[in-house]
Amino acid sequence: MSSLATAPAAALQGLLRARELGIVLALAALVAYTAAGNPRFLSGQSIRDILLNTAILAVMAAGQAVVVITRNIDLSVGSVLAVSAFGVATLMSANPSLPIVVALLAGLAVGAACGLLNGVLVRYGRVPALVVTLGTLYIYRGVTYSWAGGQQVNADELPPHFLRFANDSILGVPWLVLIAVVVIGGVSLMMRNYRLGREMYAMGSSPQAAELAGIRVARNTIGAFLLSGALAGLAGVLFAARFGTVDAAAGTGYELNVVAAVVVGGVAVFGGSGTVWGAGLGALLLTVIGSALAVLDINQFWQQAIVGALIVLAIGADRLVAVRIAGSLRKRDSHV
């Protein structure tokens, strides 16, 4: 019996692993094909650019993955990035002597406040997250526009050490990439090995059972949105440092890229399964596609269609795997 019972479980784990493996393979194939067409694609500068571009998306995807795993969604992250980027840029141009750490903390705090509001509205307003965060998407954006009043912060107004931060490396690894790796690793660990993370998976898997199991659903829901907001705020600081010029339109439309990265990275849209590092891989894949199309001299307009196709493919694969597993489990493991 036990050998029969473990077979489908092992098969399942294999498939789950294959989910992230699939992304890695797709990445490898894409990189190989592009590099064959244009060897400069693998040059140090090109790789560095790709990683820097991935970093901001990956930080936001880590937070989004947590929210999606709890069967919610956070559409306000692009606007939160803008509030944080504009706020921190204004802060740094006014106080050029402030250290980087203060900028990072300020961005985290602004983002956390926005995320807290999202979480409280979702939980206590009893409104679906899709609606709440669609609302705050416009609210946060509107606040940034009225604050900026048509002004922008230019690179020459920002202190040099702040701008250098985006390009500096430690042991050959750019700071931005290091931050993204630490965020992905930390959040992955929390979701995988800590009680809070497992409870979040449980909430997404069955909200009703989570309530009855005595899981602190309110605290965890608010926590997920707080994390997503804080990481979007952090991404705002990275954005300001990397691009130097910040106006109120910063990060417009990013929320869809972030959700796309999460879904392509194998997080189930209805919660309960998927991994944070898978979402990170999703962010990397999307960025590589963008760069590869440019290198291969394919019309950039194709990029959106390809990303769209990937999302459909990812969701299709989810359904297929779910149906197959359910079928095989039912067949092999039913006993009395």
């Binding site: 473990t6 489908p8 597993i325």
Partner: peptide
């Protein structure tokens, strides 16, 4: 006899 590592989905 139940396998602790299998997912709950699909159990009778």
């Amino acid at each position: 006899h139940l396998d602790p590592d299998r997912p709950a989905r699909g159990l009778s």
